[in-house]
């Protein structure tokens, strides 16, 4: 089946069975390997992408469900520059081994675009679906709390 959607601003067309996981379409068909598979059951969040701005686990989304949608992956989070979340993560040491980092950035970006000045508790809730084994989350939370997002105000 052919599925058409917009991925990181570009219209794309993929031919796969409709129940193919979005994660596999991104990684195998579109060669966007920034979204990672850590568990394949929606627990670790390493595959987090945004569909029409909303963060989701791409291992739990059949590609048929993104037909006509805007999908954003870590590769499309920022243009030529880096997103404020990425800059803050770099500055505060929020990335270590890096395997969970793209997913964390996607969740954090979604939070900050909606709520540019979240409390620490709100940051924790927003990131609770992204397991990280390296950082203890401390520096990730510091980074997200300090990321200055231009909300266009």
């Amino acid at each position: 089946m052919i599925t058409r959607f917009v991925c990181n601003g570009q219209p794309v067309e993929v031919e796969t069975p409709p129940m193919t996981r979005l994660l596999d379409v991104l990684r195998e068909e579109l060669r966007l390997t920034g979204s990672k598979e850590g568990c394949g059951e929606g627990e670790c969040g390493a595959c987090t992408v945004r569909i029409d701005g909303v963060p989701v686990m791409s291992c739990l989304v059949p590609v048929a469900q993104v037909a006509g949608c805007n999908v954003q992956t870590i590769e499309g989070l920022a243009g030529a520059l880096v997103h404020p979340v990425q800059a803050a993560m770099l500055e505060h040491g929020g990335a270590q081994c890096g395997i969970c980092t793209p997913g964390l950035c996607m969740s954090a970006a979604a939070l900050l675009e909606e709520n540019p000045h979240p409390s620490v508790e709100q940051v924790r809730v927003a990131l609770a679906g992204n397991l990280c084994r390296c950082t203890g989350y401390q520096k990730v939370i510091e980074a997200v709390s300090h990321a200055l997002v231009d909300t266009g105000e």
Binding site: T33, E75, M89, L90, A95, C97, G98, C105
Partner: peptide
């Protein structure tokens, strides 16, 4: 940092 944060870093399964 930057390659990991932007998803460009290539892990084995990538």
């Amino acid at each position: 940092g930057l390659s990991k944060l932007t998803g460009r870093a290539l892990y084995a399964d990538d």
